[in-house]
Design a protein around this nucleic acid. Structure first.
Lengths: 204, 204, 204, 204
DNA sequence: AATGAATGAGGATTCATTCAT
DNA sequence: TATGAATGAATCCTCATTCAT
């Protein structure tokens, strides 16, 4: 079900239904085919006209949404003129849109899950990386941006920088998901952004 | 099933069985009661003499093991004489013991899961925090240690430091779990530790 | 769908598809409508333009093919000049054409089946016997031939002779379908033919 | 599920249920697990405590009953003092016990079926033949008996005699199953028996 | 007339939980 | 107290049939 072909209407409805269910906090491994088709407003059997089984249906839907989100984020990152702004954009986006933030955490979660659906999703992502000429990766984009603007001056290994950014983003997502917070989000964002920049510049 | 009372032998067997199964990569949401009791070498019905249902059994077992691990880590941290050493200890521990590292990631994973078992586990942890006079928390220990030795000189909010340390640890765990690595683990450890210390000291 | 009317092209395609599938060893009770229409190269819905349901479709196809085979065999029998030759022809035909032999066994099988399709087929055959002015029946032909040539001299009941010939034919079909044979087919054919002739003549 | 071990009560109930359903004319390929367990008076899940799937359940039940019938027939054959009596016994048994006769035809039918259950049953019978020290086969018994009493004097190949007896028995079973009969069963039995004996003796 | 997308009733199988022993 | 045989609700998936185009 490539994203290039125009997607059948029913598949779109199924994908949307999966997204909604997950956003509403449903447990991926407990989602029923009946839940999805009912939500999509189509017959149960119809799902099987497009997907061979539940795992394929759900993981396809997730890959689809992950690709959209990645592409959207990538587009936004490209609009920012330096690393600092792109970091604030990412942190701000998590604040604003609960769905987006949850989805981000959910992605992290799913990618470390050991259920069948997650295994399939990981395999799909690998395949996509191999066959697609280019795989959107907003963290690499951020690093590239920082290099161009000179915000990254130290000779740090790419892997390390990737880890530094990714872990801070996940950390912030978890932070704002938790309720008890003693300091406000704006301050936290400032601290995170400054620490990352200082680390990459080598500045005080 | 408080950890204060001496635990019945059967419960111990059940807890150990759950741990083994999870360490072997079983999907928490797919573990069957029969798997657990068989591994524990007891009758299926016996599990229900001690726990009202599967969720309670598994989440209790997980809380139990998490407490043990937390306590062990806490004990080790207390042996280190400064924050730097405690960070290297944590990173090194993940390298050495695959089980431990996986378990660490697994805990993170489970705590962000939306299945029934995870919900229960989170509730249990909350309750424990409220009712227990003291909750072991090795990251807070590390922060405290850094304050005492002067490695933490800046007036950073505790929450932020917590997030900074935790996210770096998780990041490293994910990093070494992935296969393709361009720089060796020792260098990565050094980078992580230095960046954390520099951030907290304000030093160059 | 009488054989007198010229059969619509689609029906012919459907009948042929059913025959092919059965010859390929498909289980009658497991054949899917989709299999048939796909093989016939027509749309699934089209089958329902000509037949009210699956059972009617398959049993009609089978009746059609059985009639053709019966007629062909009947034509061949008429070419033989005595019972002996007609028996050898039947036995030889089974040896030569696996399809034919399998089909023969399949017919026997289906006629003793308790599935819906078989019930319908049997009913159809009954109706055909009643309404058609003449029903092709090669075994009766063989008996008639034997009477004319004098190879049947004893006053045996027709039913008995029918049974004697039919059971020997089925027996031979089963025999050559099995692999482990200690005596060659030619000898077996000779034994079968001689025993039948001796039985009907009363000769030694 | 060897016949040597004492069979669990539930398995016995399941086997009996399968037998009853088949005797009542149920289509083997259409029997539902729910039908069987309901008839057996046990829960649906219980069937799966003893058998991995429906096919295994039904084919096991059938093998079990076939073995019983074969053994019973074998025992009776051993009581007869010559081939003639054993033939009359077989023919008479089919007349008397509709169930038995139907079962006989059913066995023939199933053994030529292409459904999953039949395939499994055939495989089971093969295995039984290989592993069991001795496989009951009443037709071979009949031939042996005929040899001992001298009723079989000609040097006919065993395979041919087997075929001759089997096909006559099947033929008679089919004959009495059909309704329209012009001659009575007793006469038919006499004809069948005499023809077999004459054939094997070479007598007139 | 022909199609095939859509449907949903139906059936096999799983597994948490119970309860008689 | 410990057991594990028995249960049946729950759920995936199939496929005959319909009907809008």
């Amino acid at each position: 079900m490539s994203t290039r072909e125009k997607m059948p209407q029913k598949v779109e409805a199924l994908y949307r239904a999966v997204q909604e269910l997950i956003e509403e906090g449903a447990d991926i491994n407990r989602i029923k085919v009946a839940d999805i088709t009912e939500r999509a407003g189509i017959g149960k059997g119809t799902a099987y006209e497009y997907f061979p089984n539940k795992e394929e249906l759900i993981s396809s839907a997730m890959l689809y949404h992950m690709n959209i989100i990645y592409r959207e984020i990538g587009k936004e990152i490209r609009k920012r003129k330096n690393l600092e702004e792109s970091i604030y954009f990412m942190l701000g986006a998590m604040d604003e849109r609960i769905g987006q933030r949850d989805c981000f955490l959910k992605c992290v979660h799913i990618l470390t899950d050991s259920g069948e659906i997650s295994k399939k999703l990981r395999r799909k992502i690998e395949e996509q990386k191999e066959h697609a000429d280019w795989q959107e990766d907003f963290i690499r984009q951020m690093i590239e941006l920082g290099r161009q603007t000179g915000e990254i001056s130290l000779k740090l290994p790419e892997d390390y920088m990737y880890l530094a950014i990714a872990s801070k983003l996940v950390g912030y997502a978890i932070y704002i998901t938790d309720n008890g917070k003693n300091c406000n989000n704006t301050e936290m964002q400032k601290l995170i952004c400054e620490s990352l920049l200082r680390e990459f510049t080598g500045g005080i």
